[in-house]
């Protein structure tokens, strides 16, 4: 298969970027999208050009690194699929494919397709954890009974890989689905209860400080999320935040 690629090139965070056009030929339809970029980069290196910088790690759909906005959609045209799990058979031979980095004020471009997603790390640091006393008398997590439906629903939130597709897709660059998944996951479990109100307050506050946009309930994030995380979690966070603010008289 042959493709024309239009890729965002930007030398550094302060540099002015532009779309560059490349041709790739003899691409196997069984290649993943990242392998296709590998072929392009091999071609670029051989001709003495700078390869396209892009984030990737596990290449099996669980690490959340492969952030690419492909033909107007986060992680490309397929549902419930990360870029590394997207195969070239999903495209038509001869097609022009536009590849852009995630676009958000909270995700500044580092180089080419690589963006800085540490804003999400700072949101997690603002409450996305449970504090466990590790003085030697740590209680085994499995010793605490958890109702099966709660465990299942918490797991549906916990599958979030923090890729940022929700932010990239949202017309407001809102991180609500990500933050909600992290809030919801712990709000559903007994271990998460002691810090429940402080968690939601802290994480929402950090989300706002990082410059993410506001949720307008378009539902685009849920559709584009490679892990299929539901808007149910956003509603739970909305509920928890209101409860927290009322309870804390803040």
């Amino acid at each position: 298969m042959d493709f024309t690629l239009k890729i965002w090139r930007q030398e550094g965070p302060q540099a002015v970027g532009h779309m560059a056009t490349y041709q790739v030929t003899d691409i196997s339809d069984e290649m993943s999208f990242l392998e296709m970029i590998d072929v392009l980069n091999d071609q670029l290196v051989r001709s003495g050009d700078e390869p396209v910088a892009f984030d990737h790690d596990c290449r099996e759909g669980i690490c959340g690194m492969c952030s690419m906005f492909i033909n107007g959609e986060a992680h490309g045209p397929n549902r419930l699929t990360t870029t590394c799990q997207l195969h070239m058979r999903s495209f038509k031979n001869g097609e022009t494919i536009t590849i852009e980095p995630w676009r958000a004020a909270a995700f500044p471009v580092i180089r080419d397709l690589v963006v800085d997603r540490s804003s999400m790390d700072r949101i997690i640091q603002s409450g996305g954890y449970v504090s466990v006393n590790t003085n030697g008398n740590t209680v085994d997590a499995n010793a605490l009974p958890i109702p099966k439906p709660a465990a299942d629903e918490a797991f549906e939130a916990a599958v979030c890989i923090g890729c940022g597709a929700c932010v990239a897709t949202c017309k407001n660059a809102s991180a609500m689905l990500f933050v909600a998944a992290k809030v919801s996951q712990l709000a559903l479990l007994p271990q998460g209860q002691p810090e429940r109100t402080a968690r939601v307050e802290g994480m929402v506050e950090q989300m706002d400080l990082e410059g993410f946009g506001n949720c307008t309930n378009t539902g685009a994030c849920e559709v584009e999320c490679p892990m299929g995380i539901s808007l149910d979690h956003i509603a739970r966070m909305n509920r928890d935040y209101l409860t927290a603010k009322v309870a804390n008289k803040g």
Binding site: K6, W8, M19, F69, N71, G72, E73, P77, T98, E100, R103, A104, A105, A106, T169, K171, N172, A173, S174, G211, F212, G213, N214, T216, T218, G219, A220, V223, E224
Partner: peptide, 20 residues
């Protein structure tokens, strides 16, 4: 605020694929 959250827009967007 929402406009400020995305200062650089995408060259290609397919919003109708995922929202009304």
């Amino acid at each position: 605020l929402n406009r400020k959250a995305r200062p650089v827009s995408y060259a290609v967007e397919k919003p109708s694929e995922n929202s009304s």
